[in-house]
Structures are given as C-alpha cells and as structure tokens.
C-alpha cells in the first residue's frame, strides 16, 4: 500500500512540483497518475522510492513513513520501470533480470530459477538469457525491463511511462500482456503516463494531475461519467462515450440469465449453436459487443463464460447503461 499525506515538493530552484497531494493506492491495485507534462506526476512517483524526497508531508510505504526506511533497502523492495528502459547494455538479459536478486545476495540457484520464471512470465524464449539487450527490439527490451523490476518479487511496482517509447502496435500488445500479468501477481502498482487512453486501460484508479495537484481521483468509469471539472473534461477529450465502451465489460450491462440447475441441455446448445462468432464473452468490452450486434441479424446475443450462457445483451442494454442524457 502507498499513501501520500499532504505531500509538497519544492525543488531547490524554487519550482513547486506538487502541492499538498494526498491519495492512497490500495494493496494489489493499479493507480495511474496522468496529466500533461510538467504536472508533477513523475515527481510524485519518484517520491515513493525516494529518488526525490518530500519538502513537506509524508509518503507511507506499507504503512511506514518512507523517510524512516533505508533508502537503498526501500528501492530494492520496489520495482522500477522507466520509459528509457535503461537496461544495462554490458550485461546479458539474464544478468539484467538478476540485478536486484544479486544485490540482495540470493543464492545462485534461486536466482537462476527466478530468471527462468520471469522469462516465461514475460513470454520470452529461454535462449534470450544469454543475449545482450542491444540485439533485441524495443518491445522485447521493455519486457526485460519489466521482468527486471519484478525479479525480487516486490510488493510495489513503479512504472514511469513504461510503454511511452514504443510504437503504437507494440505498446498495445505490451499493455494487454501486462494486464494479464497484473492479474497473476498481487502487486501494488503506481503507473505514470500522459495518455488518458492508457490510463483508462491500465488503471483501477486514476489520479488526474493539473499543475502540481490532483484534480480528480476516481475509477475510470467514474471519471468518464462524471468528470469533475472542465480541465478533466478537456483532458479526456472527445469520444468519451467511445472510451467508456472500451473499458466497460459486457457483463456489467447484460441481462443476467436466471440460474438453472447445472446439466440443463439448452444452456450448452445455446452457446454452441452459433459457434464462437455468435456468442459474446462476458469479459469482452462493449465496443466488441456493439460491433457484433451491428453485424448480426439477431437483435439479442447470448453472453458466455466458460462455455456457459450467463446472460443476453442487446443494443438497448448498452444504451440504457449510458442513460437518457447521452450526448449525440
């Protein structure tokens, strides 16, 4: 858990980076700090592992004031991924990943095991171990960057525009992969980006920064539905509805099917009749659902999870979710 309590940071040259910032990142969740450049989001992140130190206020890491913790130990217990990737070019991929375990003087066998595990987690072939970073593409390098950050199994992971330097397609792939990884690890994540789309996609909670302060701290849905002020509205930009479609799952709007005793024949057949193209997975986004509905002759489509029909969805459900005040 990370807690900011009235944190102010003023640089020696007098620039005020952030002022009286307070927020909490609950354990195991992802909070995205988002805002235009120079808004203080990166400074806020660096206050967590003490690459910067607060002028006033307190940052609690796992309930303890981080200024009371040893700076070096603190950093070794917190994963850190940066936009420039910053792999150590003179070390192999394996050595890069092993950096923090080595610093913490793990046993060699344990380190080797962990490196294998992480290569697998990041979907990198085992023979990458002995290659040098310069031989790899940007996307692969950042996979290693993330693996290196996760190596010592930190409770907290800081990600400073981790996918910012990648091309859009690679970025999208890595975001998807990382979302899957996020489900598998129970890590508290603080993520910095300047892209609201990335924030909406990656965050459980989003903190929108304007010059030095947080203007709204909410879930993605809440931010899209109820932007607090004009700044947030402008920052989200046009296509709010469209963005919401991308982050809302079918499950949230569908008409649930009544529970029936298991083994009921027609449940299975409904799912299999139309094949994969026909049914919509429960965790698909409304964007996917709408695309399917528009392309289908049926006005209502079944929603499935694990091969079982769990509900139905139609255009009406989607519309009603957004309410009557929908802008055109």
């Amino acid at each position: 858990m990370i807690e900011f309590e009235n944190v102010t940071k003023v640089y020696p040259d007098g620039t005020k980076a952030i002022e009286e910032v307070s927020f909490t990142v609950e354990e195991g969740t992802t909070t995205v700090l988002v805002g235009p450049s120079g808004c203080g989001k990166t400074t806020s992140m660096k206050l967590v592992n003490r690459l910067e130190e607060p002028t006033e206020g307190t940052v609690y890491v796992d309930g303890v004031d981080n200024m009371a913790q040893d700076r070096i130990d603190l950093r070794r217990n917190i994963g850190y991924v940066i936009q420039e990737i910053g792999l150590f070019d003179h070390m192999t991929v394996g050595e890069n990943i092993a950096t923090v375990p080595e610093l913490r003087e793990w046993e060699q066998s344990r380190i080797d095991e962990r490196v294998d595990e992480l290569l697998e987690l990041m979907d990198l072939p085992g023979n990458y171990r002995d290659q040098y970073p310069r031989e790899l593409s940007g996307g692969q390098q950042q996979r290693i960057g993330v693996a290196r950050a996760l190596a010592a199994d930190p409770d907290i992971l800081l990600m400073d525009e981790p996918f910012g330097a990648l091309d859009p397609i690679t970025r999208d792939n890595l975001q998807d992969e990382f979302l899957e990884i996020q489900d598998r690890i129970n890590t508290t994540i603080l993520f910095v980006t300047h892209s609201i789309d990335e924030a909406l996609k990656m965050g459980d909670q989003i903190a929108i920064f304007d010059v030095g302060e947080i203007v709204q701290y909410d879930t993605p849905t809440e931010i899209l539905q109820n932007p607090k002020n004009e700044f947030v509205e402008n920052f989200i930009g046009d296509n709010r509805t469209f963005k919401q479609l991308a982050i809302t799952t079918v499950e949230e709007v569908m008409e649930p099917r009544e529970e029936r005793p298991p083994g009921d024949g027609d449940v299975i057949s409904a799912a299999t009749d139309g094949g994969d193209d026909y049914a919509i997975p429960a965790d698909a986004s409304l964007q996917v659902a709408l695309t399917k509905l528009l392309g289908s002759e049926d006005p209502t489509l079944p929603v499935v999870r694990d091969g079982r029909v769990v509900g139905t969805v139609s255009e009406r459900h989607v519309r009603s979710y957004f309410g009557p005040t929908e802008e055109s």
Binding site: L74, I78, I82, G86, D89, T99, L103, R148
Partner: peptide
C-alpha cells in the same frame, strides 16, 4: 547514459555499486 544510471539508482544500487557494476565495466 543517464537512463542507465537512473535505472541503477531506482533498483537500489548504492553510488559505489553503480560505479562498480555499471560505470566501470
């Protein structure tokens, strides 16, 4: 590179360790 040194700092290397493990090699 600054990014390399920053990464080292962020991963919890002391100044001495950054010198020994990154800069000198």
């Amino acid at each position: 590179e600054e990014a390399t040194k920053n990464a080292g700092r962020g991963l919890g290397m002391t100044r001495r360790q950054r010198l020994q493990r990154l800069q000198i090699p």
